[in-house]
Every structure is written in C-alpha cells, then in structure tokens.
Design a protein around this nucleic acid. Structure first.
Length: 436
RNA sequence: GGGCUCGUAGUGAAGCGGUUAUCACGUCUCCCUGUCACGGAGAAGAUCGCCGGUUCGAUCCCGGUCGAGCCCGCCA
C-alpha cells in the first residue's frame, strides 16, 4: 500500500491508509491507546485498541520510526477531525533511548537555558514549535527570492574561499590552502559589485563568516545574508526597494505560515507603504530629549538608541522598520559613496526593524578615480593583488549602484519574536560553539 | 576585548553551615474506553560543575578553575 502523509489522511475517510513517520506521543488509557505519528505533513492521531498492537510499543520511546496501516475515520473528537482506527503497526526503527529533552511540549527558551536547547538541537528541532521557526525561515528565503525575481534580479553564487580578506581586518577566518593562506568570505561585497557589470541586478543568499569575538544576542561567527546589488539606481530608490523587500517578505510569510506564526503568537509587523527615514542627528536629538541620556559617540547608534527609535517610529511614523541616514563619511568603508554636496556625509543607511539593525544599505562609489582616491585616504594600496580584479570592474565601467545585506537569522528572530539570534539558527556558530 | 550574573537527577525549578537534598515534567511497574500538557497508585534516578581553603561538619561561606548567560564595544 502506498504511503499517505498525515495532512492528506482526511481525503481517505472511509478507506484504509498507510502512514509512516515518527512516534511523537503516546497516551495509554487502559483499553484505549492514542498515539501521534509525525511526518513531514504534520501529526496524525491513531487509536489502538488491540492489545497485541499496543504491546508492540512497549519500551519504545518518542522518535521510534514506525508505520500504521488502518481505517481512516471521520472523528470530531480527534485533532484535525480524522483519525486512524484498527491499525497494524510495523516498527521500522525501534528507539529505546530516552530523549534528552521533550519534543511534544514547547521547549524552554529562557536565555539561561539556551545552552541545553542548543546542545540538544538534533532532537529538539523535531519539536513542532521549533520546527515552525525554520519553516518560517524557509518562507522568508522564498519570499525574498520571489521579490528579487519580480524585480529583474539574477541569483548568483559567489566564492566563500578567498585569497584575501575583502574588507581587511582582524575579524577574518584564515586557513591553510595548499601552502597558501586562504580566508573565509566575510561578505560578498566585491563580487556583488563586479556582477553589477554583468547582470545589473544580482542577489545571493549564502553563508558569511566573521571571526568577531562578540558574545551578544545578535552575533554569530557564521550567518546567512540575503545580499543584493543593483545598478542604475538612486539612494532613495535603494531604500524604497529594501523597504519593499521587507514588506513583501512579511506578507508572504503571513500568508504561507499562519499556523506556525500562531504557535509563537507572532504579530504581523506594521509597515508603512513608503520607506521611512530619519537622519542619525535626528535620532540622537530625539533620543537625548526623550530619555535624558547623553550619547557619547555620535558617529554611530547605540543598541539602546536602536530600540528606542523603533518604538518612536512605531508610534509616530506608523511603521516598525525605519532607515537611519546621513552617516559621517569619517567612518565609512572606502567603497561607500560620499553625499554629493556634503562630503562630511556618505550615502549609507541602516535599516532598523523592531529594535534591531537588520541591514546596511549604502550606495557605492562607482567612479574609478575617486574610488582609488578613497582607498588611498584609508591607507589601502590599490596595487595589491587582491584589489586588482575588483578594481578592473570599475576600470571597464560600472554604473551608479548600491545594495545591501539582510541578515536572515536576525530577520527570522524579529518576525517570530525571539530573544536571541541563535534561537533562529539551526546549528548556530559563535565564539564558543562549533558543534553540533 | 571589558563589565555583571549563574552552575542542584534526563529536563525545568526549590532549598539549606548539620535534611533521608524537595517539587514538576520525563523514564519504569500497575490501574484506567475519548485522550490531546490525560488521570490515579507506586518505583528508580543527583559524586549539588571541578580543585583547594575556612569549619567539628560545606551543596551552602571564601579563593581559584572550567562551563554558560546577559550587557557594552563592533556589526547583519
């Protein structure tokens, strides 16, 4: 008999069916035994009355792989309205080891116990509520992909093994590469820009590696960026496009994952039709006025300011996502573009969503000679081998362009409403964690 | 890299200078015909993170160490 998925069983009412999956839960009530079988479609309840069949489950733990062939009955008392009766059970993989954590009840997400959650990830991810996070993440990726395709983008995959750190710095992982030193990509920056010369609009979703010794609720050493770069656009158009991406992804996820979002009591974000922007100076001023806190370093935003300005935007601008613009050019990357008519500033924006920076969206300097000048100003040697391929893209013509990197796990975290980015990561990597 | 906090059965918690180290979930045995966080009775399960010190006596107080979490810096 052919296997039927748990969510398709309802179309077999009155007939017999075969379901195969994992033993998710058993409840023995004497003459009646209920079990739940989990497969990729969800859960199905099976009622076992035959003592011989019940006895097959003795000593077997949650996680046992089994199949049940029986009659599909319409039953209002069963979850989902259908259940299987008179099953013949076949144990495919007996499991006798007790699960280290429970998988049929919501798992503890308190920060103090995060370590247990992550140490037992292999089994814990089978918990329906944990699975929901990553189903949502899957839809985030798909929603983003659709938005890019609708807007004329081409998906690409750029190398993550690099000869030279793309943006310099100590936060780069290095390794032996057949006698040479290779580094892991800490961004797709150079390749994204190079590919503007090929496709105009490109995107990539892939791993990014940073050897930062950060220990916070929002940092990991390996994470996924939804990266894009687009040519022939203005700074305003870039922010509008990025805002549109967030809106589009949110709408898509809420239409695809209502059940999963409900498990987490996730509230749909309120997002304005058009992108909302506030200058950094305005943020500092509003924040200091409202909280009486003095911001020491005015060249950046503190986490407290990021949280506060998002609350402000929600109340006053009708949106939970806001761009912060007018960043000082004194702390910009060499490939960023200075603001025309105001060289003290650069065309950079950070996109804050529910109190967290989820992307940086700047324009790039596309004029070859000015780019070289900016490299020199930052003490970089444009003649170095690692820059040659990158610079030749400019030498042979790149239009005005800009792009951004959106942190997948940060976005998932904020959509679901999780406290720590690692809760939104299957197998997180941080300064202390390299396994599982 | 800096600061603060926390380590007690498989999991989550309580506790106290002298206890048989307490509770809930899970596990095991028995009972239970509509459970869905099933219910009831019983049982097993803990070198109280590790090392050292103070003390007649340390899980508890002190020091170190290892591990973890949170905040800051930096960032997505």
């Amino acid at each position: 008999m052919q296997r039927v998925l748990s969510n398709e069983v309802k179309s077999h009412v009155g007939k017999s069916a075969l379901v195969t999956g994992w033993l998710h839960k058993k409840r023995l009530l004497g003459g009646l035994t209920f079990i739940n079988i989990r497969d990729r479609g969800g859960l199905i309840q099976v009622l076992i009355e035959d003592k011989k069949e019940v006895e097959k489950l003795r000593g077997l733990q949650i996680g046992t792989v089994l199949s049940a062939e029986g009659d599909v009955i319409k039953e209002g008392r069963a979850p989902g309205g259908v259940e299987m009766h008179n099953p013949k059970l076949t144990i495919l993989v007996p499991v006798e080891h007790e699960s280290p954590i429970e998988i049929d009840k919501p798992l503890d997400h308190k920060s103090e116990n995060l370590n247990t959650l992550l140490d037992n990830r292999v089994v814990g991810l089978r918990n329906i509520k944990e699975t929901a996070i990553f189903k949502i993440q899957d839809r985030v990726l798909e929603g983003a992909r659709r938005y890019f395709y609708q807007n004329g983008f081409t998906e690409m995959k750029t190398p993550k093994l690099l000869a030279k750190p793309t943006e310099g710095g100590a936060e780069v992982f290095t390794m032996d590469y057949f006698g040479k030193t290779a580094s892991l990509a800490q961004s797709a920056q150079f390749y994204k820009q190079i590919m503007v010369g090929v496709f105009e609009r490109v995107f990539e979703m892939g791993g990014t590696y940073r050897a930062e010794p950060s220990s916070t609720t929002r940092h990991m050493t390996e994470y996924v960026t939804i990266d894009c770069e687009m040519g022939f656009i203005t700074f305003d158009e870039l922010r509008e496009f990025a805002h549109g991406l967030l809106k589009s992804v949110v709408d898509f996820v809420w239409s695809e994952c209502p059940d999963e979002l409900k498990l987490w009591n996730a509230e749909k974000p309120v997002l304005s039709d058009k992108a909302a922007s506030i200058t950094m100076a305005e943020v500092h001023e509003l924040y200091e006025k409202a909280t009486k806190d003095i911001v020491q370093d005015k060249k950046d935003l503190t986490p407290a300011e990021e949280k506060w300005i998002c609350e402000y935007a929600k109340e006053n601008l009708g949106t939970e996502a806001v761009f912060v613009t007018e960043w000082p050019s004194s702390s910009m990357k060499f490939y960023h573009r200075k603001t025309e008519g105001n060289e003290e500033m650069c065309d950079r924006s950070d996109f804050l969503f529910r109190g967290l920076e989820i992307m940086t969206a700047p324009m790039r300097e596309n004029r070859y000679d000015i780019l070289i000048k900016q490299m020199k100003e930052q003490g970089l040697d444009e003649k170095e081998e690692g820059y040659q391929a990158y610079l030749s893209a400019f030498k042979y013509g790149l239009p005005p362009h800009g792009g951004f990197g959106l942190g997948l796990e940060r976005l998932t975290q904020k959509i679901v409403g999780l406290n720590n980015i690692k809760e939104a990561t299957l197998f997180p990597r941080d300064i202390n964690r390299l396994a599982p």
